[in-house]
Nucleic acid binder design. Structure first.
Ligand code: SF4
Ligand code: SF4
Lengths: 155, 155
DNA sequence: AGCACTCGGATATATCTTATCCAAGTAGCT
DNA sequence: AGCTACTTGGATAAGATATATCCGAGTGCT
């Protein structure tokens, strides 16, 4: 999995707190990561329709919908794509004892297992929203931290 | 995920049928894949203790235990390693509003979600054994194919 | 002891991820 | 309306990982 997924999720939680547009440079500075590279992740999220960008002065990124309506899977798929990790190359149709193609209409057991595991993984990620992440973070952080973050974003 | 996982699984099903040691070259020819690269996967499986190699004339690879005692997860972890796909870099401890380290004893919600999804994925793969794959394949292939495969391996 | 055959690890190549830069575009100000 | 300052967007290098290959070490058989 791309390391950029972690950055993207952190940005989502931060954006859910800020009501004003936040530029990419500010998001990068807040998390102390490469601004140029974070910009790429934000572009991917923009294409996926998770965030909306406004250019020009006082522009930046805003979430397109409520944090409770964005799942972790949405972010992961925006960054890493939607194709499953396992890519079957139809080995059974090759070699000296190749299975004839008409016998390969149904996916074999290996493909089924991999597909099932991939689905379980995605179901797990789909069960949690950005709002859940924020709620959990609020429970752990020190009191007043949210206000300080908002003030820093506005400066 | 490594593409070699698919090859490794196919080799396991084939090895479970052959009672004699099968050399890497023969396994590669059977599946029509690169012999040099398949050798690497077999080495990884050997290190993981899934197969045992015997050198010299009439040598090759044999499964170390019954096919029912080898899970798909065993093979996947042998090839791709055991580390989870998501690698947390502790972003929350960086930047101008970094969370103090003593506040970060427990993993955050993001890390928990990723860990949970990874566990669900592994549980899915652990639930199926090589014996299950073979049984499913036997149900789909043409009658006599198993005997032909055994004969080809012996030649 | 000699020989043919096999595995094992060290070595190139290709592909993808990571990181960066500069040009196009937009909103607000004069 | 024109200008300026700011921000995004896609195109472009550097690095890391996965893929593919080769030859030497080791083993059993003759
Ligand atoms: S469908 Fe199954 S048997 Fe065919 S190549 Fe893919 S993993 Fe192998
Ligand atoms: S533990 Fe959670 S908050 Fe900390 S860096 Fe990892 S993902 Fe981010």
């Amino acid at each position: 999995m791309s390391g950029g997924v972690e950055w993207a999720l952190h940005c989502c939680t931060l954006l859910s707190r800020a009501s004003q547009p936040v530029p990419a440079v500010k998001l990068a500075e807040y998390h102390d990561v490469s601004p140029s590279y974070l910009a790429k992740q934000l572009q991917l999220m923009s294409r996926a329709g998770l965030v909306r960008s406004t250019q020009g002065n006082a522009g930046g990124y805003v979430l397109t919908r409520d944090a409770a309506a964005i799942t972790v899977l949405d972010v992961v798929e925006a960054i890493d794509g939607v194709l499953p990790a396992f890519r079957c190359t139809e080995v059974r149709q090759r070699g000296p004892l190749a299975t004839p193609a008409e016998q390969c209409a149904d996916p074999c057991a290996i493909a089924k297992v991999m597909d099932s595991a991939d689905r379980a993984w995605r179901d797990s990620l789909r069960a949690v929203t950005i709002a859940d992440l924020v709620a959990d973070a609020d429970r752990q952080i020190l009191p007043g931290a949210v206000e300080r973050a908002r003030a820093w974003l506005a400066s």
